[in-house]
Nucleic acid binder design. Structure first.
Lengths: 289, 289
DNA sequence: TCACAAAATGTAATTAACTTTCACTTTGGT
DNA sequence: ACCAAAGTGAAAGTTAATTACATTTTGTGA
């Protein structure tokens, strides 16, 4: 839940708007100036900002401390980082008359912040545990439906290249059939952002009841999560109707990349042989002109 | 190719390594310290950095000016911005003994910078043109093989929800059959990161020869690109054996999101009806407990 | 409405950070 | 070996940021 790399207590700009912290009258004057043009503020001295907000310098300084910064220079630094890391995004939903450039920016920012969130919400331990299961099994099955169907297929493709006996099921009937045949050496991975898709939850329960190790690519605390031995927690930055279906798939793919890479690194030499074999075969299908 | 949002004269870190500027002996000592841990340097005072590099404070100051900064604080600010904008990442490939946390970080950073790159390498115009084609056609087909197969299926799912007559083909034989039957009202979208997959390039040529509008989700200048009426340029930040296959899919998905959203916004009211219908039907498959 | 404590704010002093000046040292060319 | 040019650092100068403390404002209960 907390694996900060670049210390980033919180998003300063959103902190100022939302009332996570109690702001005095003077503080609000400061906020106004900052919000008017954050990119410029980072070049102001404390004196300049104080003057513009029509408050005293110590007030600005205290304001910075309230926001969890170590002083004014530290505040400027953090603000600068957040502005250029894209973690500012108030990314409101699309507007009917957004131009394409704006649409691109909003989607990019939405992805950015969701990716950043992985580092905070998904623990390396869970990935390690999942990797251990995958390294010690006879077969792997990925299950996904709807938007998660392509994710399951992508996972299949990825692990398939490692030379693992893997298969993806996007078909409800097939899922049921497979799940009722699993045993304790058959790992199954269930993919669902909401973790509430009836069919997937039932399949997961079926698998677990048969003693097969189950991995959930879903959000912690969901019905699906409670049927899984290991959960790779997948949440997106903001749960808006429009952005979630976009970013959730991408987050799932990113998690699969992490899982696959971890597995690959642990496989060591054995893997390189497999990869090399596939690459050689693939070359024939490419045109070099 | 150039849609910068935040002005950014140059990349400081690369400026230090490459000899774009003449560095003295003392300067090099400073560079060493900075490169050793850039993220930490931004919290140093000029005195601290000077001491660590075993040079005087004025030397550090002059060094900053050489790099085109307005002084030491300005240097720190710019460095901080660049570090968190992702324009740094040397993200070297995975190391055999990276721990899982490091793996996660590397993958995250790799995605981050590739996503940012979309804004610079893919033009809104190309997306607009592609959207126009999709809005004025009788059917849409997505073509992808290998790692791009799931991407095609994902696109299918997305546009399917808009109520468009769409189908994804991941099968070589089917692709050929479909392509030889297309006409000028059938849009086809070809997905390939390298743009060199023989089968896809041939299909695209087939489609174009029949007068069908073709869209390429590939890199500019590739063989596939030259067979397409519209190209959505997809490149990833660094072309390493390990990262490219990860980020390329994600970039493709992001571009599809942008395309789909643009189409959706232009469809307007008509769309909302379709989405609403699907949502209502979907609710029955969820468990609410 | 007044009194009073608590919070907020500003003034002024202090401290820290950064920059400039200038004298000294090193470097590279003759 | 000499000398100019470039590089460097000590110390002074300047600016910026913080702290300490006095003043004002705000809110609460008699």
């Amino acid at each position: 839940m907390h694996f900060e790399t670049f210390t980033m207590s919180e998003n300063l700009l959103s902190m100022m708007s939302s009332d996570t912290i109690k702001l005095s009258k003077s503080d609000k004057k400061i906020v106004t100036i900052i919000q008017r043009n954050p990119k410029q503020v980072i070049h102001y001295s404390i004196a300049t900002l104080a003057q513009m907000a029509e408050v005293s310098e110590p007030t600005v300084n205290r304001f910075c401390h309230k926001l969890g910064c170590d002083g004014y220079p530290d505040f400027k630094l953090k603000l600068a980082q957040q502005l250029s890391s894209g973690s500012h995004l108030f990314v409101d939903n699309m507007e009917r008359n957004d131009d394409t450039y704006t649409v691109m920016q909003k989607i990019m920012e939405s992805i950015q912040s969701s990716v950043q969130l992985i580092g905070k919400s998904t623990s390396p331990e869970s990935i390690n545990q999942a990797a251990s299961l995958l390294l010690d099994c006879n077969s792997v099955s990925f299950f996904g439906m709807g938007a998660s169907g392509p994710v399951a297929l992508d996972a299949q493709h990825k692990f398939f290249r490692f030379g693992m006996p893997v298969i993806a099921h996007t078909d409800y009937i097939n899922q049921r059939m497979i799940c009722s045949m699993l045993n304790e050496k058959d790992v199954s991975v269930f993919i669902s952002y909401t973790g509430r898709t009836e069919a997937i939850v039932e399949s997961a329960r079926l698998a677990r009841d048969r003693g097969a190790p189950t991995i959930g690519l879903t959000r912690d605390g969901s019905p699906l999560a409670s049927c899984c031995n290991v959960v790779l927690n997948a949440v997106t930055a903001e749960d808006t109707d429009l952005f979630t279906p976009m970013t959730s798939r991408i987050i799932h793919l990113a998690l699969i990349d992490m899982l696959a890479t971890t597995v690959a690194l642990r496989m060591g030499d054995q893997l390189e042989e497999n990869i090399k074999a596939i690459k050689t075969n693939l070359r024939a299908t490419r045109r070099l002109s």
